[in-house]
């Protein structure tokens, strides 16, 4: 554990909390992509299957449980409790176009061809692109509430901080995982346009509105 890794995890945790607070306080999931949230739930479940096979640390176990539980809580709020506020019409991204290629890629490029390893790799590839339905929704509606922007910023920062963690680990421990690094770089790149808008608009007190 190094400072970048810890900051990344805390940023990830903050993102999830912000999202739950937004939905709970406003009693609405308007502007949030249910498709992205489904993909994140798939990511956590397929990645954290090792919860039942390997014990790494209490921190590791607790965080995994928090991520899985909170993603299902989010889905429950969106698809059951506040279903009426869910923006069906704008959330039209076809997630099979992400799920299938990621699965095929995981079958082809992985560290070892075992069920757990393929699913872990699948989750890494899927996480890299899971935010696309959300970014698509923001681009369709042309704007995002400020708390949704904070959520996206925290979520994007998390993998960017992991990239610093991997650079640090490469030099400090000689450890690197090309699959995670490659996917993490793609994931971070997808947020760049959003990061730019967040810094130039939201941090200056303006609403995130895309140029027409």
């Amino acid at each position: 554990m190094n400072i970048f890794r810890l900051a990344g995890d805390l940023s990830h945790l903050l993102a999830i909390i912000l999202l739950l607070i937004k939905i709970w306080k406003t009693r609405s999931c308007a502007g949030i992509s249910g498709k992205s949230q489904i993909l994140f739930a798939v990511v956590y479940v397929s990645r954290y299957l090792d919860l039942v096979t390997t014990f790494i640390s209490l921190y590791n176990t607790l965080m995994k449980l928090v991520f899985i539980t909170s993603s299902f809580a989010t889905l429950y709020l969106m698809y059951v409790k506040f279903k009426a506020t869910y923006d069906h019409n704008h959330d039209s991204f076809r997630i099979e176009f992400l799920l299938l290629p990621c699965f095929v890629l995981a079958l082809l490029i992985n560290a070892s061809f075992t069920p757990l390893e393929v699913l872990w790799t699948f989750s890494i590839y899927l996480e890299a692109v899971a935010i696309l339905p959300q970014l698509f929704l923001v681009s369709k509606t042309g704007e995002a509430e400020s708390i949704t922007s904070h959520y996206l910023f925290a979520l994007g920062s998390y993998r960017a901080l992991y990239l610093l963690n991997w650079i640090y680990r490469y030099y400090a421990e000689g450890h690197y995982d090309l699959i995670a690094i490659f996917a993490g770089a793609i994931q971070t790149i997808l947020y760049c346009d959003f990061f730019y808008l967040y810094i130039t608009k939201v941090l200056k007190g303006k609403k995130l509105q895309l140029p027409a």
Binding site: I56, N60, R169, D177, A180
Partner: peptide, 10 residues
């Protein structure tokens, strides 16, 4: 996986 290092990450 031979290198378990990435599995302690989330």
């Amino acid at each position: 996986k031979e290198d378990e290092g990435s599995k302690d990450e989330l």
